[in-house]
Nucleic acid binder design. Structure first.
Lengths: 204, 204
DNA sequence: CGTGATCCTGACCAATTGGTCAAACAAAAA
DNA sequence: TTTTTGTTTGACCAATTGGTCAGGATCACG
């Protein structure tokens, strides 16, 4: 049973390759649309060998999602209650946008999952995720109460940051197609735009 | 061949039922994740009978998407160049949010499609969609040139409206789970928040 | 070296997939 | 009432799906 912990060198390498391949495939086709053959081929393994490392398709998916959740929520987690409100929020926006540029597959993986009603991570959202958001929303509410930022609904403020930043990863195809010059990188302009938007929104 | 036009009463009824069922299934599972059996059952037809009305799975999907595109872009299309800029944009935002509330399945259908690289409607995006956005972005740019709204990047302004409004349809599960009271309707608060956001953003 | 644990494979399986087809059935036209 | 047209079905198909299993290959270690 290699599933308890990553012991050997080979196990580490292959589990890593599988998760990498699975990220590719799941993020592009969703859970039901992805196939084990695709993942196995992309990882350079045979299908039975793949199933030697993970017992089921769901196990791969779960391992991916739970392993990524911490990384994905890091920018929000590092928002500092003692910092300058506008600066903290702007930094959060920029770091979140940077995540969309650097890790678009991760963004699409979560998007696919949530789109389908979050059947595999619904629990995680209701616990870990909600706890984090509750905490940070309280911080934002405090800032608003102190008059340091305008009185905006803290949860919807967070939602709008998620929406706008993840949009550039999840809907990359549409963004690029709409902007025309397909080779053009939309992210620099996006950062400028979002900085302007939140600066105007948060300063009195 | 019933595929040229909807002739008989039965054809109209069944084609309608199929598209309705397909919207349910495709929007929840994506193209590859959806099955003909699911759609047939949801439409109350046998699978061969379903394939009597549409030759392939792709045909159903295409019919759905192309039939919906016009409806989906209506709010942007009706943005009036001769109206008051702030009011026009705010109305657009509100109508778009209303679409997310009234037609979440349609939103998720497009989201699924674009997430996977828009393999079936990439062409439509590059032509019809882009033309519309180009036109309306020009209107917004004019408004900015005339000093009637701040100088914001028109395309990214439109993207941000898409992102924030569609977020409430596409990520409904996450929004409700995060807000806690699962039975609570997030849309009224969302409308208030978005109105505030764009009012602050667009007024000098 | 040898031996036990780990790693890998080809052959296989039942279930499901999108799709076909001939024949039966129903509706409408004659 | 025929005849024609339109509609529905059960049986079927090849391909693909997630997953199993016995045995072979390879590794680490004494």
């Amino acid at each position: 049973m290699p599933h308890d912990q990553q012991r050997t060198r080979i196990q580490r390498k292959n589990r890593q390759a599988i998760l990498e391949a699975a990220l590719d495939v799941f993020s592009q086709y969703g859970f039901r649309g992805a196939t084990l053959d695709q993942i196995a081929q992309s990882a350079g393994l045979s299908k039975p060998n793949l199933l030697y490392y993970f017992p089921t398709k769901e196990a791969i998916h779960s391992a991916l999602l739970s392993g990524l959740l911490g990384h994905w929520t890091a920018p929000l987690r590092s928002m500092n209650p003692d910092g300058d409100p506008v600066e903290e929020i702007l930094t959060y926006v920029r770091r979140k946008l940077e995540m969309s540029r650097e890790y678009p597959r991760e963004s699409r993986l979560f998007a696919n999952e949530v789109l389908q009603g979050a059947p595999h991570i619904g629990e995680m959202i209701q616990t870990e995720m909600k706890t984090l958001v509750d905490e940070k929303a309280a911080v934002i509410a405090d800032w608003a109460d102190q008059g340091r930022i305008p009185p905006l609904h803290p949860y919807h403020l967070i939602f709008s940051i998620w929406a706008m930043t993840q949009h550039y990863a999840d809907f990359d195809t549409q963004v690029r197609a709409t902007l025309g010059g397909a080779d053009q990188d939309p992210f620099p302009e996006a950062e400028t735009y979002l900085t302007t938007l939140f600066t105007r929104l948060l300063n009195p």
